[in-house]
Design a protein around this nucleic acid. Structure first.
Lengths: 242, 242
DNA sequence: AAGATTTGGTGCGTTTTCGAACGGTTTACA
DNA sequence: TGTAAACCGTTCGAAAACGCACCAAATCTT
């Protein structure tokens, strides 16, 4: 197994030499829909480097069951920020939103490797910085964007992290991610569809016009993606690729 | 200058030995109201360990001037997460919201010290983890709390970081922090005052009943504070102190 | 002391989103 | 193939927050 063999962009970007400290510890792993990768308050077992599929970090209220999405992770990064930062558990829930597969490494192994290889550590910290920026902009989005804009933002972010133009997800699901009403998602979806930006079928949304979605999302989309390119050296946003 | 001489809680909590690597590089520094400690997109010059006063990290939209507060930092921590994570600049704005004073260290010095002393680095990373949790819960607050609840949450967080029970701030200021209308703050303030939780005078809010504010803030307050205690070993929330 | 400025209080109508509910359609599976 | 479940579309009134605008009171300036 070598670095070129993985489809994880972060591993590619750090180069074969840096990645080589991790490779022996990887095991391939399916990411099944809904699978919890980290459970709030419990020790983190593995860090996952997705190669396909999308995972999200879900912020939970202590009580009352309120929740919103704090960030998305796909093949551009890894889960387990907490471990990279030296912790062993986090108050958030991390779960698979779009199925795929990953390479994973045991948390204790990752700690050992990081401890020995500070060059590698600093690469992983760079991604932790990106997640922090992403979460900060999620806060901005929740505070200032309208439902329709939040939806456009989420679709763009998700689109960046998958291959196809089609997302398998329900309105119910989106409503939880965006922290809004299910019926609200239905309406916003219609608006976007009416403008020809997406096409929605039952349990499925197809991205038709990224530019248009960016126009709708406005300033809600872009900063974390720009920072990714600056820090990692690979374009994050789809239209910036080849 | 030794660690006991500082009023910064993080420096106290890490112990004199760990802090000793930083102390020679510190210079005292006033934190004047409105002073920018980090400017978006520009190299960070100093990391600040506040001893009095409160600083906030402000998340900016690329255009349109929208902004919200991503997190608060007082004497329980330090600014310059980005530097601790190995970066040199961030897209956020960090500025003084409540005047006070701090010890500061040049960013490049901090980088050197961290590079040499990994035990110290891991302490500082621990606080980076806390800021990340705080921002995540800010996102939750913006998404799910009502104005009045957001206000209660903000007052509690600020109260934790100062000595007195009195805050010098205007409705206008709060409206920007919370990402809401100025008139909305006025109304919410009246509600809280009507319940006897605070007392508001021109440009000034006095905290009367913390318990009551916690009841209003509900699940919007608490998680980052609990985590602080778990990770740093000192109580963050006021009512948990002696 | 007079005037300018900042800050707070209030009252519109409007927009956005909510909560709850119902019914129809598609899909899954027994 | 039929029945149950999941999903979507739509409706209703209500709540929350908005933008805007105006005035009063407190404070600062000179």
């Amino acid at each position: 197994m070598n670095a070129d063999a993985t489809e994880n962009l972060l591993l590619q970007a750090m180069g074969a030499e840096r990645a080589s400290a991790l490779l022996p510890h990887f095991e391939p792993c399916d990411l099944g829909l809904g699978m919890p990768l980290e459970t709030p308050g419990e020790p983190i077992e593995y860090a996952y480097f997705p190669e396909r599929g999308v995972v999200s970090v879900i912020v939970l209220a202590r009580e009352g069951g309120e929740q919103v999405e704090g960030g998305l992770i796909g093949r551009e990064g890894l889960t387990g920020q907490t471990v990279v930062l030296g912790g062993d558990r986090s108050p958030h829930l991390t779960r698979v939103q779009i199925p795929g597969h990953a390479r994973r490494i045991r948390a204790d192994r990752l700690r050992e490797v990081i401890e020995r290889d500070h060059d590698l550590q600093s690469w992983l910290l760079r991604f932790a910085q990106l997640m922090s920026i992403q979460t900060a902009h999620a806060a901005l989005a929740y505070a200032r964007l309208r439902l329709e804009e939040k939806l456009a933002r989420w679709l763009l972010m998700c689109h960046d992290r998958i291959e196809s133009d089609e997302l398998s997800l329900t309105h119910e699901f989106l409503s939880v991610m965006l922290g809004v009403r299910r019926a609200g998602v239905t309406v916003a979806t219609h608006t976007l569809e009416g403008e020809g930006l997406i096409r929605a079928r039952r349990g499925r949304i197809e991205i038709i016009d990224r530019r248009g979605l960016r126009r709708v999302a406005g300033a809600g989309y872009g900063t974390p993606e720009t920072e990714y390119e600056r820090l990692i050296g690979l374009p994050m946003s789809r239209e910036d690729r080849s």
